[in-house]
């Protein structure tokens, strides 16, 4: 068993120290780099805590990801609700790791007006 605290806890705590205590002491390029480092650690912490969703394991309407991509490109899955739904769920899972704040975009479409 891994010695506690585990990797997610350590990484999240390190991000808090960087963002709340270190970044404020810096300026210019060093500040920018510290913010990037904090972002990288935050993403890695979410990657460590991420558990692949089982309901995404099966690709809709195709045998595997390669055939799905080919079928989309060839136009045999145009406008298919089940395919769109699967892609949205898959991307939602990825966005929740890379940048959870962007999940809010799901309810907005301001170019439609």
């Amino acid at each position: 068993m891994t010695q506690r605290p585990g990797p997610e806890d350590l990484l999240e705590t390190a991000v808090s120290v960087l963002r709340e205590e270190v970044v404020g002491e810096l300026s210019g390029k060093a500040r920018y780099q510290a913010l990037m480092v904090a972002n990288a650690i935050a993403i890695a912490a979410r990657q460590v805590g991420d558990t692949p969703s089982e309901d995404l394991a099966d690709v809709p309407a195709a045998a595997d990801a390669a055939s799905l991509v080919r079928a989309i490109r060839e136009g045999t899955l145009d406008g298919r609700v089940d395919v769109h739904d699967w892609i949205v769920r898959k991307l939602r899972a990825q966005v929740s790791v890379s940048n959870p704040k962007a999940l809010a975009r799901e309810t907005v479409d301001d170019a439609r007006s």
């Binding site: 993403i43 145009d78 949205v88 966005v95």
Partner: peptide, 27 residues
């Protein structure tokens, strides 16, 4: 390069936006 590495992590939200803008009823 960390900046280049992090740029890879903007891809999911960009694809998410593009896919949300192209829902089946938008075809």
């Amino acid at each position: 390069n960390l900046e280049l590495a992090l740029t890879g992590h903007v891809v999911p939200e960009l694809a998410f936006e593009a896919v949300l803008m192209t829902r089946p009823d938008a075809w």
